[in-house]
């Protein structure tokens, strides 16, 4: 029993289930799923569909955070990706052509990959702190997206492109399936190969890992490439959803929600041990909470207050200080020094 209780996904899952139960009680239609033309509809399905961009970004963020990094540029990369794809489709003779859309998507994702590689270069080769290295692109990326769209909001009417966000496949939203594919691929790669444990080793102790012969640099670089690429796909979904490339609005604040999702899922911002399943749960919590707040009649603009409260609760619960404090209640308070000092205490012992 304690094993379940102590599992690091225990609290995130409890939070998610609680949210769903509250919603189901407050508005029974919340858990209703309709079948229409062999496609599933309902609030829960909408949550799955709407969570796709955040899911992709948060997955990439998980890998980056595992290497002790952070990627602030994901929102800007989303904007660039959407801008690239829509500009290509807009400029093509037949925007409805599947081939055109496919090429546009591939080019957009490749551009995102290059942007991710640029971040990775700054962090792993030049040695700039991740927050700052990705801040550069966070600032400049939107400018690039604006230049691509010529400062306007590019709108297109393309059947195949709209399919990305609103289409259905196997009775499920296509966007959700993209997220599922990303989850499956990442889980397989991280766990079936040794990449997972090597990434954790690099995140926990980069120098020790290098001396152990781990290709730290390549692993860190790779993490940013993955993050950039996934953000690019997220940008395609976002642009497809609004059928437009809005360089100013695409992916605003998504980096913050993605970081929040990762932290909610139990991955520490200090790097190291990470959990893809945790991030998935974290994303679903955020999306469900968002839907709950809307349901409560709160303007979506005011919802950040709720997220602030969530952040505070999560970080305080995760805070080593608090855990020490609780431990001290059961044991005896000895060291009156700061919680920070407790760590080097063990070191000397």
């Amino acid at each position: 029993m304690t094993a379940i209780y102590r599992h690091r996904l225990f609290w995130p899952i409890v939070a998610l289930v609680t949210l769903i139960v509250i919603n189901a009680v407050a508005r029974p239609q919340f858990i209703k799923i309709r079948v229409q033309d062999g496609e599933l509809y309902g609030p829960l399905i909408s949550i799955l569909r709407d969570s796709a961009p955040l899911m992709l970004v948060a997955l990439g963020m998980t890998i980056v955070i595992a290497t002790r990094g952070i990627d602030l540029s994901v929102g800007a990369i989303m904007a660039v990706s959407g801008a690239v794809a829509l500009t290509i489709i807009d400029g093509a003779e037949d925007p409805g052509n599947v081939g055109t859309v496919l090429i546009a998507c591939i080019v957009a994702v490749l551009v995102s990959l290059v942007l991710g590689a640029w971040n990775g270069f700054l962090v792993s080769v030049v040695g700039i702190q991740p927050i700052i290295a990705t801040l550069v692109l966070m600032l400049a990326g939107r400018g690039v997206a604006l230049l691509i769209t010529g400062g306007f909001i590019t709108t297109v009417n393309s059947e195949p492109y709209s399919f990305i966000a609103s289409g259905y496949l196997f009775a499920l939203p296509f966007a959700f399936l993209i997220g599922v594919v990303a989850i499956v691929i990442l889980s397989l790669v991280e766990r079936r190969t040794a990449l997972g444990v090597l990434t954790e080793a690099v995140g926990i102790n980069p120098e020790a890992s290098r001396l152990a012969g781990v290709r730290s640099r390549s692993i860190i670089w790779g993490a940013y490439i993955v993050s950039g690429t996934l953000a690019g796909v997220a940008g395609l979904i976002y642009a497809s959803n609004i059928k437009a490339a809005d360089a100013n609005a695409a992916g605003v604040f998504i980096e913050l929600y993605a970081i929040l999702a990762v932290v909610l899922g139990g991955t520490s911002l200090n790097g190291g041990k990470f959990s893809i399943a945790g991030t998935v749960v974290g994303v679903l919590i955020i999306q469900t909470l968002d839907s709950t707040i809307l349901f409560l009649g709160v303007s979506s603009a005011q919802s950040p207050v709720f997220f602030a409260i969530v952040v505070v609760i999560v970080v305080i619960v995760q805070s080593a200080r608090l855990r020490d404090g609780l431990a001290a209640l059961t044991a005896r308070v000895r060291s009156r020094g700061a919680g920070v000092q407790d760590s080097d205490k063990v070191e000397v012992a």
Binding site: R192, T193, A194, L195, L198, A212, G213, R215
Partner: peptide
């Protein structure tokens, strides 16, 4: 295992 795994590369998990 880290040392031998690093030498094998990440593709081939021991």
């Amino acid at each position: 295992v880290l040392g031998i795994q690093a030498r094998q590369g990440w593709m081939r998990k021991i």
